[in-house]
Every structure is written in C-alpha cells, then in structure tokens.
Design a binder for these strands. Structure first.
Length: 492
RNA sequence: CGGGAGGUAGUUCAGCCCGGUAGAAUACCUGGUUUGGGACCAGGGGGUCGCAGGUUCGAAUCCUGUCCUCCCGACCA
C-alpha cells in the first residue's frame, strides 16, 4: 500500500477514488460500471442496513423479496415509469449458451434459445410488485401493505463512479399500498423522516428535506420527496427519496379494493429507497487527506488498540492488560480490535487505521503501563491525550459520543455556511463558480426556466425545502414573480 | 455513447518514439537487529507486458480489433 492519497485541494475526484480504494471499501471489477464491495466496505453497509432495517420494522414494515427479472409487458404497463427508465435497462433475450462450432472452448448464445418475451433486469421494482399486489388486495381489510425489500438493481449508466453511480447497486425499496390518499401521503413523509433521522443521527450527515420539481421527479410519481446532502467540494448529493405514487401504479396494474361501503376504488401507493450511494455521501461528507473518517455509530470498528513494546516480556504484560480492557469494552457493546500483530510497527498501524477511519485509537506502551495510563487518539480531530486506565470504558463511551456529535456539528456548520441567498442572475452565477453549495433563489416555477438555468450553469433545483416560509420575490433568471426560494446546486 | 489519456511484478511507475535476454521503488519470503508516527541490514522469490489477431527471423515496443479504468461532453428515477 502506498503512503498517501491525492489531496482534496489538488483533485477532489481523485481524492475520492483513492480513498475508496485505499480504505478498501471497494474495488473495480471486470464488468464495466460494476464494483466489488470489499469486506470492510460491506461491513459498513451491513451496519447501515441493520440500523435502517430496524427503523423500518419499528414503523410497521416487513421484508419480502421479489424477482430480479421483470417481463417486458409488465415493465411497460406504467407508461411514465417505463419511459423514464427505458434508456438504462439491461435486457435478457436468451436463456442458453452452446459450444461454438467454429472455435473450440468458446461459447455462443444459442439462437434457438430466444425468449418469447424479453426480461428486463429491474432498474426498480414497482412493476413486478404492483403486478403481485393485484393478487394480494381485494378489500380495505388487506390494506395497508407495508413491504420493504433489500435488493440489487441495474441501471445501465454511461458514466460511473464508485458508490455514487454504478451500473449495479444495492439498495432497499419500500413499496406500500393504502386505502386513502391521506394515508399514503402520511407514509411518504414518514419514511422521508426516517431517512433524515438515519442519515443525520447515524451517518452524521445533515440533510435538507424537500420536494423535487417536475423535472427531477421519479418517473411515475405524483410527488418525489428527498433528502439532500452537501459534500465537502460544495456539490449536492441526493441521499434518499420517498415517492407519493398516487393511483398511477394501481391504475396501470388494475389494483382495486372494496372500501367499507363496498365501493371499488384504486389503491394509493408510495415507494422509497436509499442505496449504497449513501456510502459515497459518507465518505465525501467527513473524510480528510489522511483517509476515511467514520461516525462511531456505523463504523465497523469503533476502537483499535495498538501495543508498543520492546521484547516479549513487555509484550506479554501489555497483552494481559489490553485483554482486560477488550473484555470491558466488548461488555459495553463497543466494537473493538486489539492489533497485536508483529507484522507491522506502531507507526504503520496508526496510518493504516487512520486511512480506514477508525474513530478512536488506543496506544499502550510499557511507560503507560507503569503509570496506569493509555494514549487516546481521536480520528476526527487527530487529537491525542493520555488518560488513566481506571474507568477507561466510560471515557471511551463518552469520546465515541463526542466524535459522533462533532462530525455532525462540523458537517452541519459547513452546510449552513454554504446555503447562500442569491437575488439576481449575476450573484447566482458568481456564487456557483466561487463558493458552490446550495443557492437559495427565487424561481418562476416553470420547467422551462429550470431547464434554461441548468443549461447555462449546470446547476439544478435540488429541492423545494419543506420548512421554508413563503416569500415574495422575482425569478433569478426571468424576473417573473415567485412565492418561495428554492435550493439550486451542482449535484452528483 | 462521442473526444482525450491510461493498462508492464501485489502496488506505483520506467522501458515503447528508434523491434533484439523485461527493469526500479515499494510490498512479499528467509534470517537478524528493531518497535512512542508508515524501521534497518543481508539474502531470496515473483510478470504468458489487459486480451485476441496481424506484420516480422524476432513484438512490451509497429498495425487492427476488443475489454477495463480515469478525465471532458451527452445522458442520469
């Protein structure tokens, strides 16, 4: 492993790529646009997944699993949804290979094994799920259906980046069915809140809750709610979406139910998802030029202990003490590793665990042992101090909390400092080019103006924030009247 | 999908223009000395030069095709 990664100030994109590879979160693969998630990266994803899964269960949802393949006829049923995804679908057309008669040891697609109907590899699962829900729903007594699935999806992206945009990715997709519009709307917002709660309180990444404009809306949705995060380079990243689907899919798949008065009506729907892209957000929100910085609540390892010794005798004494500490820490629920390997020297280990973003490091040497202390090093502030071994578990628990809080506060301060109002076009363009971040500006509400701004500046409307007060103003581009500021940014 | 750059030891890269026994650093293995911020000495192993064709007496090097990656553009629920 080489000794450094590209500095953020030098090349932010390269820094990100270097970091993902060197921290061993992921690797490239032999398949274009598809990555290998390595064990350390997957451990991180597992922690995120487990926390989210519990939140879903706590809000009444259950898990299920639907097929990877969607028959084309089902896929095209909801027209807007199908159109929206058509350009990035992988399609299965054959079901068999055979030996190539012209080249020994090679295989060809068997032309006689062509499928009657092509199968679309799911870019999202609304179609196959609503086709299924049709069979599950007859009356209001069958509602609501609150199902989530953890799955992979495929979107044939032209330009990919590790975690941020890959051809195949892992995610969860919730698909719910309701008797009333109101209930579906409540569900949509409830799950948006769950996402915001998770991303802020577990990942320590502050988000803005908002609604997407028509241009940015999920294909097939009535409304798309989102959480938007800000990265250290001033670009925005959509961290999660929750869609109010109205009756669009119920109509497309003919899913009706009898209400209490025995009247037939179409079912109301929502869907919501977050993906492994969140890992990209996590990396770009907190990390520095030394490597990854992980929030304790989802870090695969929260504490690493490194011994410093001369000779076997010292090592044995340190081992004995550290083993006691490890038992205590594990009892307190802390994910801890004692790296007593003799393969690397302490300095090497320090750098390695910094690259991997382990929140707290303890270093224990013979001198410390004599004095009954241990060196505590925080990854987030890179601050080191000597603490008494007595009562160290409590100190560590408090430090982990402090790190979690500091990461969030730090990211929120950066985010808050990078929401800037712009009142005219010159200001708007200038802010985008010099400062970046979110720009709060008036917009006349038309897709045409949004499109024009995008063409001129590459900035899009990230969302119409949910919690801002109405304010009279004029559109930053057209000068037409506007009633609310929206957030623009260049985005991932 | 268009334009540009790249792929040679586990890793980072030199060699390619001008064809002639495949190199460096680092990592790895063995032994020893070491260990409070990426240790040092000595010895050693490791590469069908992305893959497939072609030109040539001879190809990492020239030609063609193809795959993967990066950058720019188009696209991106």
């Amino acid at each position: 492993m080489s000794k450094a990664i590209t500095a953020r100030s030098q090349d932010y994109s390269q820094w990100y790529n270097d970091l993902v590879l060197k921290a061993e979160l992921a690797d490239y693969s032999a398949v274009r646009g598809c990555m290998v998630i390595k064990p350390y990266g997957f451990a991180l994803w597992e922690n995120m997944r487990d926390a989210l899964d519990k939140m879903f269960k706590d809000t009444g949802h259950v898990n299920a699993y639907f097929p990877l393949f969607v028959p084309k006829s089902l896929f095209e049923a909801e027209e807007k949804n199908a159109e929206g995804f058509a350009k990035e679908c992988a399609i299965v057309t054959h079901y068999r290979l055979k030996a190539d008669p012209t080249q020994k040891g090679k295989l060809i697609v068997d032309p006689e094994a062509k499928l009657e109907e092509e199968l679309v590899v799911r870019p999202t699962s609304e179609a196959i799920i609503w086709n299924t829900y049709k069979n599950w729903i007859q009356s209001y007594r069958d509602l609501p259906i609150l199902v989530n699935q953890w799955a992979n999806v495929v979107r044939w992206e032209m330009r990919t980046r590790l975690f941020l945009r890959t051809a195949e990715f892992l995610w969860q997709e919730g698909h719910t069915a309701h008797a009333t519009k109101e209930e579906a709307l409540v569900e949509t917002k409830k799950m948006l809140d769950v996402y915001a709660d998770f991303v802020e309180n577990w990942m320590a990444v502050p988000v803005i809750k908002g609604v997407k404009t028509a241009n940015e809306r999920f294909a097939g949705a009535e409304d798309t709610y989102c959480i938007e995060a800000l990265m250290q380079d001033g670009k925005a990243l959509q961290a999660g979406t929750s869609h109010f689907l109205g009756q669009n899919f119920a109509k497309a798949f003919d899913v009706k139910f009898s209400d209490k008065e025995n009247k037939l009506d179409y079912v109301w729907a929502t869907s919501w998802g977050v993906s492994t892209r969140l890992i990209g957000a996590l990396v770009m929100a907190h990390s520095d030029d030394e490597g990854l910085i992980l929030p304790p609540k989802i870090a695969p390892l929260q504490v690493v202990i490194v011994p410093i010794y001369k000779g076997e005798e010292q090592k044995a004494a340190i081992d004995a003490k550290v083993n006691e500490i490890v038992v205590q820490l594990k009892k307190a629920g802390i994910r801890v590793k004692y790296d007593d390997s003799d393969q690397a020297r302490p300095g090497w280990k320090f750098a390695e665990y910094e690259m991997k973003g382990v929140p707290l490091r303890l270093a224990l040497g013979a001198r410390d042992l004599e004095q009954g202390v241990v060196e505590l090093a925080r990854r987030d502030t890179r601050e080191k101090k000597s603490m008494p071994l007595e009562g160290i578990t409590e100190v560590i628990l408090a430090q982990l909390d402090a790190i979690q809080k500091n990461l969030f506060d730090r990211a929120r301060q950066y985010r808050d400092e990078h929401i800037t109002p712009a009142n005219n076009w010159e200001e708007f363009v200038n802010l985008l080019d010099t400062k970046g971040g979110f720009i709060a500006a008036h917009w006349d509400g038309t897709p045409e103006t949004e499109e024009a701004i995008k063409e001129k500046t590459k900035a899009t409307i990230r969302c119409i924030p949910l919690d801002t007060a109405p304010e009279q103003g004029v559109c930053v581009l057209t000068g037409k009247p506007s009633t609310q500021r929206v957030l623009f940014a260049r985005a991932y």
